Amino acid sequence: MRKIAILIFIIFCSCSKEKTNKIPKEVPKEIPKEASYFKHIKSNDVKLAEPVYGDWLFSHKEKGQTFEQYFTSKHIVPTKEANIIYIRPIGNFNSLQKKQIKLANEYLEIYFQLKTKTLAPISNDVVPNSSRRMMYGHEQLLAGYLLNDVLKEEKPLNRIALMGLSELDLYPKPEWNYVFGLASYHDKVAVSSIYRLQDGELTSENFNLCLSRLLKISSHEIGHMFGLHHCIAADCVMNGTNSMEETDRHSIRLCSVCQRKLNSCIQYDNKKRLSDLEKYFKKNDLNDEFDLMKKDIGIIQ
């Protein structure tokens, strides 16, 4: 009987050991070599100026994010089930504002090389009085309510990211004056306001400046949804900003490091994306932005 018990024990231990050996180990992701495209455009990266009082990096001592850190991090990637970026307008928009939203949709589709759709606008009435206030003579909506009680509930088909665009100004909490936007990167949802991008009123005279701001802010926020952190490597659209003046100073261009990150996630054709961006900026008379793309194209040819 004792021999049988010992035999059973040996068999049990042997089976346990065999099962343990069969447990697959997670294979570390191999860091891909830097493609020649990124090496070439790196020479067009512009070093960030030393931050001064009022700048984002003056008060936020960020460590940045290397390509290796990004590549080995957990972040969303497009799949057959999740591959469309959505824009949800919130409020009553005039014809010029509607035109900007349409152009932002077109831009984001080029920028991320993913299908982008604008959903039908929803009324400001979705926000209850308890989440609204008057400040400095204009109405503001509570950003957190739009984010958590409106946008997070939306599940459009094949959504990979959803960005709400509010006509009205936003505030994050009672003690704050305003906020440009708010995001839940875990839920891949964000809300931003066009109110402060317009210098009081959107006109044909300031249309291009305000459009450039909208393109920067929307691509920046959605970039975060794809796992990109604030950039400290160069002048880049992923730089953090504290003010509209600082946003205006920073480039609409992704630096070479951030382009490499985004490309490793979405795996688009770099040259096609660059060419598409150049055509977009030229068509819409965004001359400074066009020159940036033209410079990159010139160096890779």
Rank of each mutant, 00 (worst) to 15 (best):
I85R: 04
Y86A: 00
P89S: 07
N94C: 10
N94M: 12
K98Y: 03
K99N: 00
K99D: 02
Q100F: 09
I101A: 01
I101W: 00
I101H: 00
K102C: 06
K102G: 09
L103Y: 00
A104E: 01
A104N: 07
E106H: 07
Y107D: 04
Y107H: 10
E109Q: 15
Q113D: 14
Q113L: 09
K115M: 09
K115S: 11
T116S: 00
K117G: 00
L119W: 07
A120Q: 14
P121Y: 04
I122E: 02
S123W: 08
S123Q: 08
R133S: 11
R133E: 12
G137S: 12
H138D: 12
H138S: 13
Q140A: 11
L141P: 01
L142A: 09
G144V: 02
L146K: 01
L147G: 02
L147S: 04
N148A: 06
N148E: 13
K152T: 09
E154D: 13
L165Q: 02
D169M: 10
D169W: 04
Y171W: 13
Y171M: 12
P174F: 09
W176T: 13
Y178G: 08
G181K: 10
G181V: 09
G181W: 08
Y185F: 13
Y185G: 01
K188E: 07
V191A: 06
S192T: 12
Y195D: 02
Y195P: 01
